[in-house]
Write a protein that binds this DNA or RNA. Structure first.
Lengths: 385, 385
DNA sequence: TCCATTATTTTCACCAATGAATTAAATAAT
DNA sequence: ATTATTTAATTCATTGGTGAAAATAATGGA
């Protein structure tokens, strides 16, 4: 429970006006007043402030029937910029993201899997520097850096608690990167920020409850409730890779039997396939399936079935209005989306829940993490300031 | 996004002070000021108001070391009363609940399973009337009625969307009961209010993320996040009875194969048992298991295993700090609690999640719904007023 | 032209919260 | 016992955001 003083009240109202303009622009002062219940006085004052500070712009005048025309307001997209970083084992993507989630500049490069934390961060710092300079970014408008990475991440403390993929444990990433770059740094799990990106700019715009599923190397889920990332008590919400799907099933790397990820994971699929025939890539496996080879059909069909089951189980627990499928599997083989969605609804979803949600493919796959982490860091900024 | 004006600010601060006193009483004005960051002036004014209105009481003076003694403040428990109703197929429990969740008066009676909605509500109204009169309850302090029942319930609209157990569909329960009694009525799913009760007064006090599991006739879960019931987009969050646990498994009543509830449900267990030997009650089944009869051991062990799996899966998705086991099965056979909890942690929980949560048996089983629904209706009151 | 209508700005009063100063009541030091 | 110190609570004046009403602006229609 927070103290509510005049200052807090003002900041909240500013934020409200700001968010409305951001999402409904162009919009008039009067419309904002009507929608929020604030007095026109207040809206005008806040708008004047925000304009003064360079966040807003009056665009055209429009007549809404009778009476004086309204003056429409719009965001100055470049008024707030942030950096979004996708930090993966093999590759790093960096982008400059504006207030609307547009990527105004970007770069990416390979990362050596054995590179140290410090070396990785130094390089990121240098690349951000290069990127801002070569694109003549107004660094005065750059308010922070967001980083999305695989693993359990403590957003509040800015610490990577545990990342199997990166091999990191209790790394004070935000602090270190801030020391290097000078910017505020917000970090989070990559699937969670990706979900945020889809909610703000992708396939889940307007959704008040978005469940994101990631099928790739590992299985994960993330939930956005009323625009907020649901992180769980210890930042592990959505770690569904180790939900038990078959207590008598295959052994998982984690030492338990029947973990979900054992049946969907690209890595697992390949190692299962290799018991039958040498298969190097997931593409080969899907090719063999298309060719109708029994073992490939079996393996992939089973994976798709478990994907459908996962969607159903997530829906039962979370009751979302939108489910987004994403990850390496759906990126590489977009045709499976329809198959899984149909299978899920026809075979697994309980009748009363049918029609309460939509299943959609990710729309930002390539840039989701960059956009999401960039926007997340902007949220942190506005929450504080 | 809500409008923040002075009035809102005042109500929020009042609420903050109120909640702190409720949960930390007896406490001094100074301590509240320190904790909230409000000025002593503000706290004093709010306390004066609340005292004036009869909600608070100065108790004793206590010296906290040096300086002037603090005057401790406490709630007047009977200042706010509400009615909690547990509405089940066969039986109805009614209680008068004070602000601390104490049941100050109660009654219960059988309900004919074919009784109409109106007859059921008329009877509830009459019983509430009788209860308040015979216990000399100050009806001026009675601010509302809360009802907990099985099924999908739209709390906001006050409508029972769908209840298999009661055979109701789209019943405007809150409206009807308000028309009969004159009191404000808040309704919700029984497991959800039970979770709220455990959070406020039972096994999950102090938890910021409580997952409640109900194992009985049907399987369900409920989640309390920061003291708020998580209802989902269409009030179906936690409907885990129809999560798919074995795609090639037994048929469920719902027409799908391998639903979780098919393996845990008391009804299912009995019908499975009866394929082998006539068994009338769940007690007989457990008795047979204790006697070491193979088929009974198999059926019950399988149910317990799926209960353990359910806990694991809920933990993976929600990442709670506390998991509460409740329901007819754990009420009747409390010994299974240890067995399930141990099995869950040893066999199913992923290493990084171990130690992040506690599994506890419900502490309010008999009165959870009455207390929870009563307290829920009080929350609604304070949120509005 | 004048009037009704709607949008925006200006002026001003209101009031919740705050901070400084004060009063109250205790303990510690002398 | 007396004084200094510490903490609690109250009193009073100030601050600042908001809302209400009036003023101003701009438009379409009679």
């Amino acid at each position: 429970m927070k103290k509510h003083d005049q200052d807090f009240m003002k900041r909240q109202n500013r934020l409200t006006v700001f968010e409305i303009i951001k999402s409904q622009q162009p919009i008039s002062r009067a419309a904002i007043a009507k929608q929020t219940g604030m007095s026109p006085t207040t809206v005008s004052r806040i708008v004047a402030e925000l304009t003064e500070e360079g966040y807003l712009l009056e665009t055209e005048q429009v007549s809404a029937g009778l009476g004086r025309k309204s003056t429409l307001l719009a965001m100055v997209d470049a008024a707030v910029l942030s950096v979004g970083v996708e930090l993966d084992r093999h590759r790093i993507h960096i982008g400059i993201v504006d207030i609307q989630g547009n990527v105004v500049a970007k770069t990416d490069y390979a990362r050596a899997t054995d590179e140290s934390v410090n070396a990785t961060l130094e390089r990121i710092g240098a690349e951000i520097d290069r990127l801002t300079k070569s694109n003549e970014i107004d660094c005065g408008r750059l308010i922070g850096i967001g980083v999305g990475l695989p693993g359990i991440v403590d957003n509040e403390k800015g610490v990577v608690v545990f990342s199997v993929q990166l091999g990191w444990k209790n790394v004070a990433l935000a602090e270190k990167l801030k020391a290097i770059t000078g910017y505020e740094v917000a970090i989070d799990n990559e699937l969670k920020v990706k979900a945020l990106a889809e909610h703000l700019k992708g396939a889940a715009i307007g959704s008040s409850r978005t469940a994101m599923l990631g099928f790739g190397n590992g299985v994960g889920s993330a939930l956005i409730v009323d625009g907020e990332i649901d992180r769980g008590k210890t930042n592990s919400a959505g770690e569904i890779g180790h939900t038990t799907i078959d207590p008598n099933g295959m052994m998982c790397d984690c030492g338990k039997a029947g973990c979900l990820q054992t049946y969907i994971n690209i890595h697992s699929l390949l190692s299962e396939a290799n018991k039958i025939r040498p298969v190097r890539t997931i593409e080969e496996l899907f090719e063999a399936r298309r060719a109708g080879e029994r073992w490939a059909v079996y393996l992939v069909d089973r994976a798709l079935m478990y994907m459908a089951i996962t969607i159903n189980n997530v829906v039962c627990m979370h009751n979302p209005d939108t489910v987004i499928m994403s990850g390496e599997l759906t990126d590489k083989f977009p045709e499976i989306y329809e198959e899984v969605a149909e299978l899920c609804i026809k075979r697994f979803v309980w009748e009363p829940l049918r029609g309460t949600f939509a299943i959609r493919p990710s729309e930002l796959s390539g840039q989701g993490v960059v956009i999401g982490s960039g926007l997340m860091s902007q949220n942190c900024f506005f929450a504080l300031e």
